[in-house]
């Protein structure tokens, strides 16, 4: 059995407002689990916001329904995990390998940054839902 110490969930339109909502959820989550080290909070928050922004900016609807964003975050004794989903979405377009943009490029660093921030990133597709699972093994159990 997993021992979930704290959690937050968000579901709503994949629109700009969602970025601030999810960020506020994360800030309040950390207040519930003050033992999670600052570095873990900082890296995990950044990875989740990158992932959410990626969906808002790039997810395309699969049909008539607009893309919805879902974020489920759980804190376990030694594990931070977020399931970041795009509902009613087409499969992601193009390669999912992180790019290495030139130093004067103004975009394209998000995926590489996510990979640097968390321990594992996995992708699942089920029906019309794309889900990225971000896991970070926390420094203190």
């Amino acid at each position: 059995m997993t021992d979930v110490l704290a959690s937050r969930s968000f579901r709503g339109p994949a629109a700009e407002d969602a970025v601030e909502s999810v960020h506020n959820d994360l800030d309040s989550l950390w207040l519930d689990v003050p033992f999670v080290q600052d570095m873990d909070q900082m890296t995990f928050t950044t990875a989740v916001i990158e992932s959410v922004s990626n969906i808002i900016q790039h997810a395309e609807p699969a049909g008539d329904e607009p893309v919805e964003l879902g974020v489920d975050i759980t804190v376990q004794p030694a594990l931070l995990q977020a399931r970041v989903s795009a509902f009613h979405a087409q499969p992601p377009f193009g390669p999912m390998e992180p790019a290495v943009p030139g130093e004067d490029s103004e975009s394209g660093r998000g995926l590489a940054l996510i990979e640097a921030l968390v321990t594992t990133v996995t992708f699942e597709r089920q029906e019309s839902t794309n889900t990225w699972v971000l896991s970070r093994t926390s420094s203190q159990g």
Binding site: H23, T46, E50, E106, S107, R109, L113
Partner: peptide, 9 residues
């Protein structure tokens, strides 16, 4: 806080 969008800006 700054993400890759902010860095791009």
């Amino acid at each position: 806080f700054m993400d890759s969008s902010g860095l791009g800006a």
